[in-house]
Design a protein around this nucleic acid. Structure first.
Lengths: 329, 329
DNA sequence: TGGAAATGTGGCATCGATGCCACATTCCGG
DNA sequence: CCGGAATGTGGCATCGATGCCACATTTCCA
């Protein structure tokens, strides 16, 4: 910048004013400075700018697992929106580990990022960030009674719609493969599953809610057990990872889908339309969810929003494909 | 930091020395300062540190499309290794667009990142970065005659092995679905395909090399054309995106895989083992590739490497699954 | 016991961009 | 023709961490 000032024959202050819209600078000088900057290849130092202005254009994004297409899509949506606003995305994987999550939060604090988008593992993480003046948006799920902004898939409505689709096909014994109900994600999907049964006057056998862990192998075992112990004519998987395990087990058993059993999943990811038959799913518009998160955090940073917490509910859409059909008699 | 100094009753300089391993500080003072920092909840400001030390612990990662599992895995590997070294990842999607790529490069320059890992779209981008003193590692591909570090999949060997696998099964008319040969990626895979034919004394009909564009829909059309115009008993897709199109077309035609036609793909991604039959693929250990990139760029930054350019070749591994079988007579 | 060496700590300039304030110049009306 | 407003530009302190240098204190040996 000193160099640009010398090159243009003005002072550093003038350079600053000439390159930004803020402050006066005669058109002549402005042009001269811009030319000089161009010639030298001047690129403003973000660190200095951030230090002085006590802010930054980097946004922290804290997710569980980039290799899961859900998180990848979320991040892609966030990045797209941030880039358009000339912000940068600092992406950190926490592997759904509380310790790594807190570690990451501290790093982001050190970077003095003005905002963070997080798929929280612990309520403490968003809390700590917020306490330090960072604008936090929780994505995909809510832990306990947080008081920050959140962007959620409408889990209950989506799961209800999916369940109703199966009930309408005559299924009355539907297994639900689910890994957790402590987060709003699992809780909402389970609630939707229950609500659909209730609405349709179908008694729900609680044994058909099969708890497993967030892992395809475990989901496969759980599916096996579910099929061994109970008569079910359809299975709903609460997310894309569990669906993988369920499908593997069904294929292994050479069960005809959907003739002998129907399979459906919450969270539509690409492979689900590639398998034969393609899976009936609930698409939670993950990329759009990411965009919403970014828009929300940017609006907060710019102070465009009232202090009240904002809850964005991204609609979920049922996609009927070949894996669901009439219940066998 | 001023606050910590006051709290501990020492000067800022001493705080700096006490919190780092560099410089002297009596154990007593060190303990006192650490305690004070802890109490206050002090987190060093990266911007100030970066400004002063003219460096940064953020690494730029410039990729084409986070939604493609290949890039997601690459990024995941990079992030894992960076995090372990207490570096951060600034992730930018350039959508394989030269303009966006240059834009991103400029942003990374502004951030004064010490290193960038890029899956280049244009040779200009890594060049510009390098000219500005940034350590650049090109991942997955090489453009023209660059002189920087690169981490590549051993495309030629992998493609040769895959092709040989098919030739050994008696296939002599193998279609290759490929989108580009300007980058080292496509060029290497095509070379391996050719080399395998040569080694096995099978004449290669150049018409069976079907050029398409990087898009599942286009790949499907090209596959259709390939099947209409030529007798082929096997198809190799040059990457995961094209494989999607090829598979869709084969399913549409109700061709029995592998009885009537074999299908194989370069770049193993999760859905390939979920479809029935599972696809024979070449696994390029994408995550490990990402880790290698990160290790390489960190080593450069630390000055641990001789000036000569480093070319890391990550081995590719053939995974035989159900989609390839003996050639039909 | 005096002086040199060793040890620990504080002062201060610095990195680069920013924006307040002061000052120089031009412009206009009374 | 002079004073005050309007306009444009430069000086300078500042953000927070760092590390050189100087200085104060202690240690040690001659």
């Amino acid at each position: 910048m000193q160099d640009v000032a010398r090159e243009a024959g003005v002072s550093p202050s003038t350079v600053s004013r000439a390159l930004h819209t803020r402050g006066y600078a005669s058109p002549a000088v402005r042009a001269r400075v811009r030319a000089a900057a161009e010639r030298i290849g001047y690129v403003a130092d973000h660190n200095a700018r951030n230090l002085r202005s006590r802010t930054s254009t980097s946004i922290g994004v804290l997710i569980s697992d980039l290799r899961n297409p859900f998180y990848a899509d979320l991040a892609a949506g966030i990045e797209e929106e941030l880039r358009a606003a000339e912000y940068q995305m600092v992406l950190v994987n926490d592997n759904a580990d509380p310790a790594e999550e807190m570690q990451a939060a501290e790093t982001l604090l050190a970077m003095r990022v003005p905002g963070v988008i997080v798929t929280p593992v612990t309520a403490k993480c968003p809390q700590v960030l917020q306490d330090n003046g960072v604008h936090v948006v929780c994505a995909d799920r809510e832990l306990g009674r947080s008081n920050g902004d959140v962007v959620l898939s409408d889990n209950k409505a989506g799961a209800r719609e999916l369940t109703e689709h199966l009930l309408n096909l005559g299924h009355t014994r539907i297994g639900l493969l689910i890994d957790e109900t402590k987060w709003s994600t699992g809780a909402g999907r389970l609630a939707g599953f229950r609500a659909a049964h209730l609405d349709n006057f179908v008694d729900l056998d609680e044994d058909l809610v099969a708890y497993t862990s967030f892992d395809a192998g475990a989901a496969r075992q759980t599916t096996r057990k579910l099929l061994n112990d109970h008569e079910v004519t359809a299975i709903i998987s609460a997310n894309n990872v569990l669906a993988q395990g369920a499908l593997t087990e069904l294929k292994e058993r050479r069960l005809k889908i959907p003739r002998q059993i129907s399979l459906a999943a919450y969270d539509d990811v690409p492979w689900m339309s590639l398998v034969q038959p393609a899976l009936t799913t609930v698409d939670q518009s993950t990329v759009e969810m990411g965009r919403s998160c970014a828009r929300l955090v940017l609006a907060r940073i710019r102070g465009e929003l009232p202090p009240r917490r904002r809850i964005v509910r991204v609609p979920a859409r049922l996609i009927v494909r070949g894996s669901t059909g009439p219940a066998p008699r």
